[in-house]
């Protein structure tokens, strides 16, 4: 399992904002750093297949050697976590996890219970997500993404809105849970980047550390 960006360029009005040519191995966390507005989030949008109309893209995206460049978001199997947890407010915690779990999977209740246990949220399935703490919500969002069996994980500053103490804990939990997946983390926070323990690049591919 690997995520390959093959001569990927994202252009805005013929100006290349993002230029990357690399492969992320399973279990590796590649960090993309830069100030806001540099195109980090646009890169992730392009990778999941939701590039805003103002941009254009050249090059290819390959997941496990299979080209996904032209697939719609729901067929790419790329998990994405946002700055906010984006839990669906109309579903319970278990409902959110069940939404992530593919339909043909048997023993759904058991799988959901197992994910809750792994996240330290045992028995919280019937709860309203709005009644959870920020850290709990972040963990539900991660488990929901992992239950959807992604082949790569994309993290869009998912720790930036958490309190400092919680942040280390959620970060460690995320990297531990995602250990077999090729992961790309975009952030402007140096602590996040160091904790990822992988290469740190700019959006144009320069090695930052």
């Amino acid at each position: 399992m690997s995520l390959q960006l093959d001569k990927l360029r994202i252009l805005r009005k013929d100006h290349a904002m993002v230029a990357l040519d690399l492969t992320v191995a399973p279990g590796e966390v590649l960090t993309i750093m830069g100030p806001s507005g540099c195109g980090k989030s646009t890169l992730l949008a392009a990778l999941v297949g939701a590039l805003p109309a103002a941009f254009s893209m050249t090059g290819r995206v390959l997941l496990e050697g299979r080209e996904v460049t032209h697939l719609p978001p729901h067929k790419r199997q790329m998990g994405l976590l946002f700055q906010d947890d984006i839990l669906f407010p109309h579903l319970s915690v278990a409902g959110n996890l069940g939404f992530g779990l593919p339909r043909n999977i048997p023993n759904r209740a058991a799988r959901i219970a197992e994910a809750l246990r792994a996240a330290g949220l045992e028995g919280m399935g019937p709860r309203d997500p709005a009644t959870l703490s920020g850290g709990q919500r972040a963990r539900v969002a991660l488990m929901r993404t992992l239950l959807s069996a992604p082949r790569a994980l994309l993290l869009d500053e998912p720790f930036s809105k958490l309190d400092t103490g919680l942040r280390d804990q959620i970060r460690a939990f995320t990297f531990q849970q995602a250990q077999d997946l090729p992961t790309i983390l975009v952030t402007h926070d140096m602590d996040d980047a160091r904790a990822a323990k992988g290469a740190i690049l700019s959006v144009t591919g320069e090695l930052l550390s």
Partner: peptide, 15 residues
């Protein structure tokens, strides 16, 4: 919030 739609799509939900 269109991100809810994108979140759902990356979880494998079609339009």
């Amino acid at each position: 919030d269109a991100r809810a739609g994108l979140a759902a799509a990356t979880l494998g939900a079609g339009p």
